[in-house]
């Protein structure tokens, strides 16, 4: 993670360093690659505008507050019906190892099930779960990004995981 004193100074660096996590967050929340692209693009535009006035602090919290607010503002406003997620092509995965083909196919099917289960979660649960387990933020950073107390984050993550477990069977 970027320390408070080492925040990126231009949006291209933000895209380079955080782009995969931003896009993955958007995709996991929307289940739609087009919406994920649009949201990510809007996030980077807002980052470019906001960097000039950025005051040193928690860059992670700042970035993910922008990211989540973009989701709230844009995605909810022109919400498309979540589509059945496309199978994740192995060549699009960042964690590109070379497991046997049957393991790859099994992981894709499992990933699709998990994605569907995520989309079934209420947004209030989905966002903190994805921020924690996909993006890798701390509870404090999630709380700042979502504008809620840490105790609320803890509760939502736990309830979200409990529901996911029920959905996944």
């Amino acid at each position: 993670m970027t320390s408070p004193d080492q925040h990126p100074t231009d949006w291209e660096e933000v895209a380079r360093v955080h782009g995969r996590r931003i896009y993955s967050y958007a995709y996991r929340l929307t289940g739609n690659p087009d919406d994920a692209s649009d949201l990510s693009q809007e996030v980077l535009l807002r980052v470019r505008k906001g960097l000039a006035g950025y005051t040193p602090g928690s860059f992670e919290a700042w970035l993910w507050r922008i990211t989540h607010n973009t989701f709230v503002d844009e995605y909810r406003r022109r919400k498309r019906r979540p589509t059945v997620p496309l199978p994740e092509q192995p060549d699009r995965m960042v964690r590109a190892a070379s497991p046997p083909a049957d393991e790859v196919l099994a992981s894709i099917r499992l990933g699709d099930d998990v994605q569907k289960a995520l989309l079934d979660l209420p947004e209030d649960f989905r966002a903190p779960v994805v921020m924690c387990d996909v993006v890798g933020l701390s509870y404090a950073e999630i709380a700042e990004a979502l504008g809620v107390p840490v105790g609320t984050v803890r509760s939502r993550i736990h309830r979200g995981r409990a529901r996911l477990r029920e959905r996944l069977g």
């Binding site: 782009g19 995969r20 994740e88 964690r95």
Partner: peptide, 11 residues
């Protein structure tokens, strides 16, 4: 299960 989801390559 959620942590096993891969990070996705943006367009």
């Amino acid at each position: 299960a959620v942590r096993a989801l891969p990070l996705l390559e943006p367009p």
